[in-house]
């Protein structure tokens, strides 16, 4: 601790050079970041502390300070917590499956076993160019019991039923993002110096052993990065289930936390919706942060 503070003190003493240039470089982003990131966060917190009061039954509604009233309502809101539980279950299953799939494909692409790498790399990445809304519309038809080209299967096994629709949505998200995550891991694999593997190969290790004991540990930072983005994405889940609402009644108006926020704000009950947004943002932040710290700790040992 003491050793790190010494150079910092030294840096403070030297005057800052190029002040004007630094200001020019920082200003545009800083202004926009303050206006469209920091201000909304502050606004959401402010709005979430308000309650609506009326003078009598037909009086004019007035927003007054209500302390943590909305947060108590959020914590009592069973539909919201059911939605949180649903995306948590979704994340626990979908994120490892997707990243495992992406890792296997990246390792295969990086191994000498596969020919035609350029083609596969592009073929797997193409779904990333499909927006979530479009992907959900497409898969909605593929799941449909009568319009699907796989109707022989989908007419007998309902993929849009209340018990299955969450996993049907998980498949849409997986389909879109596997290739993207694969490319991030694959780029990390390409960046590894090949001398590392030479020694292992000379010792007689096969591709599987090299992958498990050398490659995977070395690309862990890339996997952690993809995991964090996937966790954030899962808690934010909105477009795909929202689209599925026009294919099936199994997706309720509070299916995911974000759909619950949207539905609540349309009531309109903006203060409660703002409190939900804040709870959701804090939960996302904490989860990604904890995951980051947890994996870093593990990596150090």
């Amino acid at each position: 601790m003491t050793t790190t503070s010494v150079p910092r003190l030294k840096a403070r003493r030297t005057p800052v050079k190029h002040k004007r240039a630094i200001a020019i470089f920082l200003a545009p982003f800083a202004v926009l970041f303050a206006a469209f990131y920091l201000l909304p966060i502050g606004w959401a917190i402010g709005q979430s502390l308000l309650v609506v009061e009326r003078d009598g039954t037909f009086g004019k509604p007035v927003e007054v300070f209500g302390g943590l009233t909305q947060y108590i309502l959020v914590f009592q809101n069973e539909a919201f917590w059911a939605a949180v539980g649903r995306v948590a279950l979704f994340g626990v299953v979908q994120v490892p499956v997707m990243l495992g799939f992406a890792l296997v494909l990246a390792l295969l692409l990086d191994s000498p076993l596969v020919k035609g790498k350029k083609f596969f790399r592009l073929a797997f990445f193409v779904p990333y160019a499909v927006p979530g809304v479009i992907a959900a519309i497409m898969w909605g038809y593929l799941y449909s019991p009568n319009l699907s080209p796989f109707a022989a299967f989908t007419s007998g096994f309902d993929l849009l039923a209340p018990e299955t629709v969450l996993w049907s949505i998980a498949n849409v998200v997986t389909w879109v993002y596997v290739g993207y995550n694969m490319l991030i891991i694959y780029s990390a694999l390409l960046a590894l110096p090949s001398e590392i593997f030479e020694a292992a190969r000379l010792d007689g290790a096969n591709q599987l052993q090299i992958a498990l004991s050398i490659k995977i540990p070395l690309v862990m930072p890339a996997i952690v990065l993809t995991a964090i983005f996937s966790i954030i994405g899962t808690l934010q889940l909105l477009a795909e289930p929202q689209v599925f609402r026009s294919f099936t009644s199994s997706v309720s108006s509070t299916f995911t936390p974000n759909i619950a926020v949207y539905t609540t704000s349309a009531v309109p009950n903006v203060s409660l919706a703002a409190a939900m947004s804040v709870v959701l943002a804090i939960a996302t932040f904490i989860m990604s942060f904890v995951f980051l710290k947890f994996t870093q700790r593990k990596g150090d040992k």
């Binding site: 966060i41 959401a44 909105l238 703002a274 959701l280 996302t284």
Partner: peptide
């Protein structure tokens, strides 16, 4: 800014609408 990376963009949509 790094903290901003972790804030879900959808959490900002509603407050942006209010602003």
């Amino acid at each position: 800014v790094l903290g901003g990376v972790l804030v879900p963009a959808t959490a900002l949509a509603l407050p942006l609408f209010l602003i």
